[in-house]
Design a protein around this nucleic acid. Structure first.
Length: 254
DNA sequence: GTAGGGTTAG
């Protein structure tokens, strides 16, 4: 392109940066950004968002905040997609309160969080107890958004983790009634919660149900159960040892 | 015309 005398523009740069990021070579994309910024070319939000997303995945948080600053200096106003990445990154990092602060800040500044941002935030808040998450769930309804597959699974996971299986099942049923199909994820979510609260037998029932409903079991399905069952075996083995029935328990473990 | 985000284990 350059040899032919065609001048690269912002769109060329955007395409290249996106390609580098899609190819898991975020650093190369970043290098290109630095180079073109030096030449006075400012690629749009798309390029910045792609790089921010890439660096979030690589946990290169210094780069993320640097890019955010560069964006603002270059007059590329971060949009919903930019903030979605940032909030998600903060929540995954355990800085849920900070993410929530930005989320609330955005609303005050006229941004309208959409269903994805609500899902991300509800997911984050679930790690801090269900109060805030439920509040946001209802706020979301008030804004006219309806939960989808992701939102339902997120909230169901929240209830499961807290051990409120009654609420989890109500929501699960509601999800199905709304036409969202049961999936590997929805099953894994329930199973994980049950196992976490020692209800491995119920999780195993679900496990057996899966093929009957043509739902694929994946590595998470198996790992969840294997972990739960091996924990039971281990504690049974230990208690048998202490009560002097080592031979019998050894057989049990086998 | 223009890319793109969110769910399940450890």
């Amino acid at each position: 392109m350059i040899e032919c005398g065609v001048v690269a523009d912002v769109e060329t740069v955007r395409c290249l940066i996106q390609a580098f990021c899609d190819d898991n070579d975020v650093s190369k994309g970043y290098g290109l950004l630095r180079q073109v910024l030096g030449d006075g070319i400012v690629p749009g939000n798309a390029a910045f968002n792609k790089l921010i997303s890439g660096f979030c995945k690589e946990k290169e948080y210094t780069k993320v905040s640097e890019l955010l600053h560069t964006m603002i200096t270059m007059n590329c106003i971060p949009d919903n997609f930019t903030y979605q990445e940032v909030i998600n990154w903060l929540c995954k990092k355990g800085k849920v309160s900070e993410g929530f602060r930005i989320f609330n800040d955005l609303k005050e500044r006229g941004y309208a969080p959409d269903i994805v941002m609500y899902t991300t935030m509800i997911h984050g808040l679930c790690t801090m107890g269900l109060g805030g998450a439920r509040k946001l769930w209802f706020e979301m309804f008030g804004k006219g958004f309806r939960p989808n597959q992701y939102t339902y699974n997120t909230m169901i996971h929240g209830f499961c983790k807290s051990g409120d299986f009654e609420q989890a099942r109500i929501l699960y049923k509601e999800m199905c009634d709304k036409g969202y199909k049961e999936t590997t994820v929805s099953y894994n979510t329930m199973m994980t919660g049950l196992c976490l609260h020692g209800r491995t037998d119920e999780a195993y029932k679900l496990f057996k149900e899966m093929p009957q409903k043509d739902i694929v079991r994946d590595v998470i399905t198996y790992n969840t159960l294997i972990r739960a069952i091996s924990t039971i075996l281990h504690s049974t083995y230990c208690s048998s040892l202490s009560s002097g029935k080592s031979r019998r328990s050894q057989k049990f473990v086998e």
